[in-house]
Amino acid sequence: MKTATEPNVNSELISSDLPAIKIKKRKKPRIGQYILTLILGLYTLFCLLPIILVFVIAFSDDESIASNGFSYFPQKLSLKGFQYVFNYGRQLFVSYGVTIFITVAGTALGLLIMSLFAYALSRKDFRLRKFLSIYLMIPMLFSGGQFASYMIFTTMYHMKDSIWLLILPLTVSTMNVIIMRTYIQTSVPNELIDSAHIDGAGEVRTFFQIVFPLMKPVLASVGFMMATAFWNDWQNALLYISSDNKVPLQLLLVRIQKNIEFLLNNKNISSSALVAMQGKIPEYSATMATVLVVIGPIMIAYPFFQKYFIKGLTVGSVKG
């Protein structure tokens, strides 16, 4: 972001010996720079290796894992894991659909209602905004917690096993509204909004035709964060969802783990029952193949959104 161009911009203003210092520094990167690169490289590797392991195990042969343990260098490669994943395909297919619906609907809805709210809060002459800002801030400082939420949602709203419970509670977050409001205040010129008004555009039209398109960078960064939150949400699903046709991918992962646990811990199951279940015991490579299928889409989408949130994510001033 701050690159070589900056000193040049100022060079006319500052005494002439400054660029000389810069050039001298750039000529020979000191040994420290190489050490720094090495350290950062090692840390990057530390971040990356666990993810690579998922790939390797998904393509490993189960028997070699069972006999030699988990390893980056499996003795035998195999596609059996994936075969298994696609064998219990129907549930996976349904879960994929559920997760995609939650992610798309939740992110779109959330971005829409949060940006409307943020826009209204950014209007300086809107008196009610002081009260609404406080109303927005309080949930960040104090919350009912998961038990009170659970009781309210299930006993009062009777929303147990409703897919909307996976969507609505996550649509509005204080932090995201603040990020959006700050963005509108700093990056959408007031003159533009005023001139739209003078040209006779109503508030709604001004918002959708002028402000909303200009918010693209912040919508991309917040939207990607929200999408991953929806995609990765296992807790609400575990608490509220019971019917199979509403199980999202993350809950499927949790259930797979529970099944393994159950089979491993239950020594009382008769041997004949075990044989009968043999086909159903998810093995390591199959489990990792499932993990790969679950985290895959985010890994693929990430590079496209990456540039936005390295630039666009600033908490901004929290104070209104």
Partner: peptide, 17 residues
């Protein structure tokens, strides 16, 4: 860019890793 990736993996998946 690579260092940020882990935050996008849910704990339900991390658990297996």
């Amino acid at each position: 860019s690579i260092m940020i990736v882990p935050v996008f993996i849910s704990y339900a998946a991390v658990q297996f890793i």
